[in-house]
Simulated assay, not measured.
Amino acid sequence: MAISLPRPLHALTADELTAAAKDRRWPKWQTMALLHSLQLPVLNACLIEPGHSTAALRTAAHVLAAATGTEKLMIRSDGGVEKKQYYRGGNTFPVEEIPSRTAGLLADGRAVILAEPTNRFTNRLTVLIRMDRPGPRRPGSLTLEALGPGYDVADLTRGQIPPQVTAHLDDIDWDHYQPPRWNEWNITGDRCPGGEDARRHRRVERLATQTLTDGGHLDGTVGAEHAEAWLRERGFLHLFAPQPTREALAKRARRLFEDAFFLAAAQPNRNWHCLATAFSVFDEPRTIYWDLVDGERKYAATAPAAARDEERAA
């Protein structure tokens, strides 16, 4: 049977989005489809499953680039068996480099998500959103962890950089919507040893050894001062500007709570205990959600396990 050509997420029909949102083989793509079906902002992207030809990959990349009006695309990976050296996605590359840069991922059995590019150095606000509860119909909590200008999602999810501001709500009934009062929010400030200078240094260190090296901008043997110089030379000064993160988070906290409640109600695992997603405000300005992570289903199901789940759900 012929494999259909990948299509951009924003071009999928409602039925196609519903099918993608139920496919646990590709967890990131599954939740991107769910987010888009709920009309929450998400990057336009396409999924390249293992087995597609290089020609199909090249065609999909050009179609997505044309749809988004860009000559570069972001590369992410999804599903498959993860290894110790996990692919750090999120960097952007020229369309003509996409086949060579994704060949290894596809050969390892991982899917590739191509997405419209973002600038990882000019974000205005980054928020990690975590929803917790001990079990269904039991009260839980919401935690918002935020970083301000010049940081990105990876700093919170895998960069071990502490948030500048944390907002927390307890005693949330995730089954019945009740808007929180302002006095119910517990907001705490900077708890990074060494303060903002130490946090900024950790950010530029990570840029030097990972982000800028992975993107081909630095060679990986240089230090934080080289990453800082690279940013300043290109006018990416957001990281070195004032950080009004508390005010920015307070402005959006109510809406983030509403979106979190909406997501918790819509995601397919009704027995969830911990869900997490990330939210970014770009410099344009533009807002997007990344993928929704279910703590109990972090990794893709194997084919037999997925089949058993479908049988139980039938």
Rank of each mutant, 00 (worst) to 15 (best):
E284R: 13
F262M: 14
D294Q: 02
I288G: 03
G195V: 12
G69M: 09
Q160N: 15
K251R: 15
T221M: 12
L17A: 04
A260T: 04
A306V: 02
T70M: 06
R7D: 09
A250S: 14
A306F: 12
R254Y: 14
G109L: 08
I129W: 01
A107E: 14
V112W: 06
G150R: 00
P304Q: 13
L73W: 01
T118H: 01
M1F: 14
T68L: 10
L57Y: 02
P193K: 07
G135K: 08
H62L: 14
A253K: 01
T31A: 02
E233A: 15
T13Y: 01
E225K: 14
T188P: 03
D291K: 03
N44C: 02
A111H: 08
P50R: 03
S280C: 14
P117I: 02
R203V: 10
L125E: 02
E82G: 02
E71V: 13
I172F: 01
H238P: 01
N44A: 11
V127Q: 07
A253I: 03
W230S: 04
D170P: 01
L5V: 04
E96H: 15
Y87G: 02
R138T: 09
Y289E: 06
C46Q: 03
G223I: 09
N91C: 13
L212Y: 05
S37D: 12
G223K: 10
L275I: 04
H217I: 12
I288Y: 11
D175E: 15
H62K: 15
V42K: 03
Q30M: 14
I75E: 01
P244T: 09
A250Y: 03
P99Y: 11
G90F: 05
I288H: 10
A276G: 15
C192Y: 10
G104F: 12
W290A: 02
A61H: 10
F121M: 10
H273Y: 09
V222Y: 03
W230G: 07
G104D: 03
S100P: 00
A111W: 01
G135S: 12
G216S: 06
H62S: 11
S37N: 06
T68I: 08
A208P: 04
D291R: 00
I3Y: 06
A300N: 09
A227V: 05
P149E: 04
R252E: 10
P139Y: 06
T302S: 15
A154W: 15
A229M: 06
I161N: 04
G79L: 09
I172L: 11
P6R: 08
H62C: 08
A224I: 00
P285Y: 07
T211V: 12
G189P: 08
L73I: 13
R206Y: 12
T209E: 12
R101A: 12
G104M: 10
R199A: 14
D259T: 07
